[in-house]
Every structure is written in C-alpha cells, then in structure tokens.
Design a protein around this nucleic acid. Structure first.
Length: 135
DNA sequence: CGTATGACCATGC
DNA sequence: GGCATGGCCATAC
C-alpha cells in the first residue's frame, strides 16, 4: 500500500515544518527524519522550493536551515526574518543549533498523524572553550 | 526509462 | 576549516 503518494509527500513535509515554533529552527535532515517516508533532506529542500510560488505565508520555510546552521537560500531574506524572530546568526552567517534547534514534534501529535518520532539524541556539546550561555 | 537537477548530508583529503 | 566526492530520494524532460 501507500505506493506512490506524489504531491502528498510535500503536504506531509509542510505539515511537519508547520510544527516548528517561532523562535526555533530545524534542519532539512530533521524534517526528513520525521517524515521518514521516502523523504530525505534534499527532498525537503525540494518541497520548500515549491513554496516560493505563492505559499510562503502558509509554511514557516524560513525556520529550516542546513545541518551546519547555515542558510541555504540566496539573498539575506531568510536571515533577516529569523533575526526578527529572535534567532541571531554569527558573522559567518551560522545559527547556534545547540541553542535554537527544534527538539522535534510533540509525541502525541506525531502519533496522531502517523509520523515516526526519532529517538532524542543526546544534547550536542556546545562550543568548547568557554561558550557562555546567557542562561 | 535514463539522465540531469536540486533551499542536503556525511565523509575524506 | 574549506573543498571535492559519493550517496541519498523525488521530479522534470
């Protein structure tokens, strides 16, 4: 069964992206791990690219960044919007994932929508050398 | 149906 | 740390 959902896959990707709250970011790989059905990081980027045709305001595409905390979209729009949401980027244009990364979808929500919830990974080590957290 | 492309990622040098 | 390569999966032609 479930053979060949085409654009349905995109809708599922959008659904997961919509779970990323204001003030947080997720990586393409994070989204793919939740969708997990014939979906990988690249497919997520492919799906989000389709949003540029008029659905930008339906899905918080700006909260999706690459695995290095960098912005993969051209221009500075995404970085500006994230900054307005309280997510700063350093001089290299990278976001502190250890601090702003979305922990994943709510377990009940995921189960209700048939998504697999990947096991929570051990907290990533913050930058050694005295990275001072503000809290 | 083979080839090329893409808002990716992990690995190796 | 940066650059090159392979792998990954879905679409377009």
């Amino acid at each position: 069964m479930s053979s060949g959902p085409d654009r349905r896959l995109y809708e599922r990707i959008y659904l997961v992206v919509q779970q990323v709250p204001h003030g947080a970011v997720a990586t393409y790989g994070d989204i793919a791990a939740v969708v997990a059905e014939g979906c990988d990081a690249r497919t997520v980027g492919y799906a989000l690219n389709e949003l540029r045709k008029g659905r930008e305001d339906e899905v918080p595409w700006q909260r999706i960044v690459n695995a290095q905390g960098g912005i993969s979209t051209p221009g500075s729009l995404q970085r500006e919007v994230l900054a307005s949401e309280g997510i700063p980027s350093d001089l290299r244009g990278r976001i502190d994932l250890a601090r702003y990364r979305w922990p994943g979808p709510d377990r009940d929500w995921a189960a209700a929508h048939g998504f697999a919830v990947p096991a929570p990974r051990p907290a990533e080590p913050e930058e050694p050398g005295g990275q001072l957290r503000l809290f």
